[in-house]
Design a protein around this nucleic acid. Structure first.
Length: 434
RNA sequence: GCCCGGGUGGUGUAGCUCGGCCGAUCAUGCGGGCCUGUCGAGCCCGCGACUCGGGUUCAAAUCCCGACCCGGGCGCCA
């Protein structure tokens, strides 16, 4: 007996007409007319109608089809027919219809989306939610984004590295860290690969990148914050902040191009027309940003971080990607390089899309004495910086870098209303499962 | 964490202002029946719910307090 070839629904075409194919998938919908039953089979790539007329199929096949529940896993072997009345133009008349695993009823969530479900319900039953083509499209695109980022950075001479996520101290300052138990020692989940990236500059790797999780124990509760996020981080030697901003904007452009090209199917599922942004992105100085906000009635004292309402006002004037540059030194971390002639501001930048910060970076301080001075000015003790501070004493090259939120990039690209939409199993203030 | 709004069958909702007429609406789903061209199949019958704890009252889905959770806004986020 000839082996029947397994096909995806989307592969069925005119060349298959009259041929026997094998399909695996889930029962998406059942329309039972008594003497004829239509089953919509869904697989990773799409849908196809399985048409089961009582008088033209095996009795056992008909009986099986009559009792199958929605979302059961099935194997269908049948003949492909061109049929204008069938959705998609083709239908399968089965010789074999096997229930590989029956699904219970009722379902916790309607995959066919006749009834909508709230995000919270969807996340509780994420595996079912992910069966929806629209939802799966988000993650197929996410895959492409990460692939594109890797390819681009490799082409630019970056070496992919992995740094530890379990760290010993909270001395980087600022954000709250998650404490964990590490044998007899105290340990934390790392908030960022920052210090390690810099040490690797001292190691002479010159250009490194890491795509990995970061953990922040802040009790924030917004549509754009997570307690576990994925960060795309780079660090490069012998280059300044302008240089890494240039890499960043070219990266963004490249990702949009790659997604437009290789994910057109998924963009269509989502109803999104992606427009590749033009580079260079606009550079807005911190002072200019404050002026815009001020003019619109939201004043920020110089030196403070820019508030959410102010960023929303600024974004009205800046519809595309843009940088906010030349931040007050005191509003940025200790390792940002101050301007020589104007030390109250520093060579740091944020990449914005709308009011959301996608990335932030800077030229770093590579001079030991200046770094020590800045750490002390920030009220921290150099003793607690151990391995990090030591690496600045024995030949640290000038360097710069940035961290880009992968989840936020996807959110901006696909216009997601909630960052959780772009994360398979998000972790936030209240969600620890699934 | 703060302010505001909310929590009703598996899912999404109406009802709450003004307590009783709620033995709780509608859709979808599920079970049963009819049906050979559906594509949100249709028609008939049935099933299934007031987040939890306390209080007020003759009487609570409805009013009050607390907890938990959700949504929006903000804060926090080197």
């Amino acid at each position: 007996m000839l082996e029947v070839i397994r096909k995806y629904t989307a592969e069925i075409g005119d060349s298959d007409i009259g041929k026997t194919v094998k399909l695996y998938g889930w029962v998406h919908e059942i329309r039972d007319h008594g003497g004829i039953v239509f089953v919509i089979l869904r697989d990773r790539e799409g849908f196809i109608q399985v048409t089961v007329p009582r008088k033209k199929v095996d009795t056992d096949v008909f009986k099986t089809v009559k009792k199958v529940h929605r979302e059961s896993v099935i194997e269908v072997i049948g003949t492909v027919k061109a049929e204008p009345k069938a959705p998609g133009g083709y239908e399968i008349v089965p010789q074999k219809f096997v229930i590989l695993n029956e699904a219970d009823a009722p379902l916790p969530l309607d995959v066919a989306e006749k009834v909508p479900a709230e995000l919270d319900t969807r996340l509780d039953h994420r595996y079912l939610d992910l069966r929806k083509p629209k939802i799966q499209a988000i993650f197929r695109i996410r895959h492409c984004v990460l692939k594109s980022v890797r390819e681009f950075l490799c082409e630019e001479g970056f070496i992919e590295v992995n740094t530890p996520k379990i760290v010993s101290t909270a001395t980087e300052g600022g954000t709250e860290l998650f404490p964990i138990s590490y044998f007899e020692k105290e340990a934390f989940l790392n908030q960022s690969p920052q210090l390690y990236k810099q040490v690797l500059m001292a190691a002479g790797l010159e250009r490194v990148f890491e795509i990995g999780p970061i953990f922040r124990a802040e009790e924030h509760n917004t549509v754009r914050h997570l307690n576990e996020a994925v960060s795309i981080d780079i660090e490069a030697s012998f280059i300044d902040h302008e240089g890494v901003m240039n890499i960043l904007e070219r990266l963004i452009k490249r990702v949009y191009e790659d997604v437009s090209e290789s994910c057109s199917r998924y963009l269509k599922w989502l109803g999104i027309e992606l427009e590749t942004p033009k580079i260079p992105f606009k550079r807005l100085s911190y002072d200019e940003a404050l002026n815009i906000a001020e003019r619109k009635g939201e004043s920020i004292p110089w030196g403070e971080d820019i508030s959410t309402p102010a960023l929303k006002l600024i974004s009205e004037d800046m519809p595309e990607f843009y940088f906010i540059v030349d931040w007050p030194t005191k509003s940025k971390p200790f390792y940002a390089m101050p301007y020589k002639d104007k030390p109250e501001i520093c060579k740091s930048f944020d990449l914005m899309k709308g009011y959301i910060e996608l990335a932030s970076g800077a030229q770093r301080i590579h001079v030991y004495n200046l770094l020590v001075k800045r750490i002390e000015e920030c009220g921290m003790s150099i003793d607690s910086f151990g391995f990090y501070i030591e690496s600045f004493r024995y030949g640290m090259p000038p360097h710069a870098g940035w961290g880009l939120g992968a989840d936020r990039l996807l959110m901006a690209m696909l216009n997601l209303k909630n960052i959780r939409e772009g994360v398979l199993f998000p972790r936030d203030r209240n969600r620890l499962v699934p």
